[in-house]
Write a protein that binds this DNA or RNA. Structure first.
Lengths: 199, 199
DNA sequence: TAATCAATACGGGGCGTCTCGTTTCACTTC
DNA sequence: GAAGTGAAACGAGACGCCCCGTATTGATTA
């Protein structure tokens, strides 16, 4: 605990904070989002509603913080994509994993809830981009830059655009449920991207 | 609202129906979506709440019907994309127009509201796909097929995939506000798509 | 007269605030 | 150390507000 000063009420605080975030994640993952109420979160976490509102200003903020904390667990050391030297194989591995992730019902409900909040709250969207999206994109771009150095990708390619072409179709297909998120589909997105931005 | 039906055949039904849909569109376009309530719609339309619930089962259904009616105005004759014989020019025209459309604040709020409802209601999403998306996609595919016949596009290309690569990045950039929807960007999406699926 | 309507009351339920009595903990005082 | 103390944080939940969707009523229209 890197606390240097002042009264140490942190033990109690931290425990209830974690309980609130865990309860939120559990509820969002297992129920339709409309059923997730602040009262339900408080009950599940074994805390009073005021304890929640002392920390976060709104339900959106709670949900967002809950998902943010999820990624901060795996964080600490920065994420990195596999780099075997074979760009196509590496990307297909990652895209297949991503497609599988979206097919999981709990993850589906979680990200759908997040997108609902984000879509209607520009400030939350900015925080989402800064804290969740950008670190991931940095890792992806690092892998792409390595591919550029290896001559497997157009050296002048706009990496933001490359990532969009690679991921946006998958994301849209998931969001609108407009088609299967199969391994074949994941592979074909990689093929398309490499054809468009290949050397 | 001018009524062209002189005879007493139709009752107040149609006029109030139009008033409700128009009021819904106006409210969704000018306010944050959370502020759009059924009571506000009824007040704006000069209609009782019961008149609304006699026609639609839920708020989602009202919003959806309001946007559906919008597209049915311009409908009647099926939509068609320009076909000058120059695929690149035609697509850039359409993509630039699409990007501009999304930049309009009223349209932005409208489609954001629709996406919010759709994202959390699979049945509504299916109806959305059937009544709004598929007619448009049919028109787009017709243009792409014409390009295939002209040898400007890989004859074996999966047209669903082509459309996704073309539109999904724009859609995602708009939804997540992750970058400018400029004409340059629209053009580069066409360039990428043609590079990936060109002959 | 018979539908249809606008208006409005109503129950149900969630959000965010407020209050209350209790627990925890840093800091005394013995 | 052990016992005591005050303040901050707490669990519980009542409350006011707003909204959804239903039910009722008296007026309007065909």
């Amino acid at each position: 605990m890197p606390n240097e000063k002042g009264p140490d009420h942190s033990r109690r605080k931290e425990r209830s904070r974690q309980a609130i975030l865990a309860a939120t994640r559990a509820l969002v993952a297992e129920e339709a989002y409309e059923k997730v109420t602040v009262e339900a979160i408080a009950a599940r976490a074994g805390v009073g509603k005021q304890t929640i509102y002392r920390r976060w200003p709104s339900k959106s903020a709670i949900v967002f913080a809950a998902l943010l904390a999820l990624s901060e667990d795996t964080d600490g050391q920065s994420v990195a994509l596999p780099d075997t030297g074979d760009l196509e194989a590496d990307l297909k591995l990652v895209m297949r994993a991503t497609a599988e992730e979206f097919a999981d019902p709990s993850f589906d409900r979680l990200i759908r809830a997040l997108n609902t909040e984000i879509s209607n709250d520009a400030a939350l969207a900015a925080e989402y981009r800064e804290k969740l999206v950008q670190p991931l994109e940095a890792a992806k771009k690092a892998r792409l830059r390595s591919a550029q150095d290896a001559g497997q990708l157009d050296a002048d390619a706009d990496l933001d655009l490359v990532l969009e072409v690679l991921y946006a179709p998958l994301f849209q297909r998931w969001l609108h449920r407009s088609g299967p998120l199969s391994a074949t589909y994941a592979d074909s997105l990689v093929d398309v991207t490499l054809r468009a931005f290949g050397p």
